[in-house]
Design a binder for these strands. Sequence first.
DNA 1: ATCAATTTTGCGGTTTCCCGCAACATCACC
DNA 2: GGTGATGTTGCGGGAAACCGCAAAATTGAT
Lengths: 243, 243
Amino acid sequence: MSTYLIVEDDALHRTFLREVIGLSDLDCTEIVEATDGDEAVRLAQAHTLRGVVMDLQMPRKTGVQAARAIWAEQPTMPILFWSNYADEAYVRGITKIVPPSATYGYLLKTSSKERLGRSMQCVFVEGQNIIDREIRGVQQRNNNRSDGLSEAEYEVLLDIAIGLTDQAIALRRNISLRSVQGRLQQLYAKLGLVDAPTVNGHTALYNSRTRSIALALTSRLINGKSIEMAEQDYRRWAGDDQT
Amino acid sequence: MSTYLIVEDDALHRTFLREVIGLSDLDCTEIVEATDGDEAVRLAQAHTLRGVVMDLQMPRKTGVQAARAIWAEQPTMPILFWSNYADEAYVRGITKIVPPSATYGYLLKTSSKERLGRSMQCVFVEGQNIIDREIRGVQQRNNNRSDGLSEAEYEVLLDIAIGLTDQAIALRRNISLRSVQGRLQQLYAKLGLVDAPTVNGHTALYNSRTRSIALALTSRLINGKSIEMAEQDYRRWAGDDQT
DNA sequence: ATCAATTTTGCGGTTTCCCGCAACATCACC
DNA sequence: GGTGATGTTGCGGGAAACCGCAAAATTGAT
């Protein structure tokens, strides 16, 4: 006697999820589906749900944003995230918004059907948090700060990634210009920006600022989506401030 | 009496492709499958293929790279690309390497089963090129240079995206420092980098260099993968030069 | 309350980037 | 050969960014 919500834009994956839910022992009697974040939020209000399975990258509204909206009204709703990538951007986003009362899971799409079924069981029935092994690796790197970025460093990384100047960052974060540069120095250090073994014996080959963006992108600290979202945040901040 | 090769890392999509090939009127008697680019190249050598269906983003080797390798040996092999995104980076990559003797297609994964089947028919049986409507839009933007980037501009965009300094670019491209900056100016202009309506009445908020990367990323001119590949290119060039 | 560790900030100087202006070079087309 | 469009280069100056050093300020723990 339970209703589940599937949020996923790819039709194929949607039917796959439907099938696995049906096969699993979840006492499922009804499945509702959304293909983007906005719809997901609406449906979560309209139905009494037992749980949500949600893709992370979707048009219009990210899975993270949709989850925040849902949790804002139903802070105990179990949500299983189901994503293609283990990008740090997503992991960071989720761990920052998950309320203590909610159970959630984070699974990669490469997982087998059996594993997906078991994870649903854990999250929706037994109320246990499940996190994919690979993702766990990302999470732990965050805590020991040997090579994980602190919050401040990640923040400044996003700021330069959306193209802000040092001044703009200083303004936004309410710190001095020099502090911004200090944080940037830390960031460069953590990303391993020693001046690259100069290829032709010439001078420096890399521009620290852009180079750090490139490194962050290729090491999946950030991605296109996280830049888009960071830019939205910035616009919101900038908009509120003037009017 | 024909063999087809499926190249796709996602198991779900793989079975989907298998199914559609089976249903279509392709005279298909055998299907071989690869889950990454390297395997695809090997299998293309080992079998006598009638055609290839290939995803673009895969581990190890991009679909574009695999296609180039296959076409290098069998320049008439029909290949149907089957991708999630219409990113310009992919379109550019493909149109640059497709030999005149080959037929190919480019379809988005959002296409229906029927459309996929018809496209296979066109490419593999009738030898017609098929290109998704949305992708065609991207292609045409390239030709009329009103807002499409020229080759030189795209090149310099990738160069700064991997973090090179102006000097390094000048060295690499064999042009003067000033020319690099000239090209950058053109790039900035085309990306619409007018100094943004200063938010708080203060000075410039955007760093042109990083801002153009952000714009290119969000407008899908480039993506993480294209940066990785550009970096490989650069390393190759730099490596050859010094030894 | 005190002391250590971290972070923020100012100062000063070097390097790099950004760009307007103008002189060539190149190429194509008439 | 002329002419215009496009692309390259030098010059020069102003603005950012980068960074070492050391003094404040903040934070945390004992």
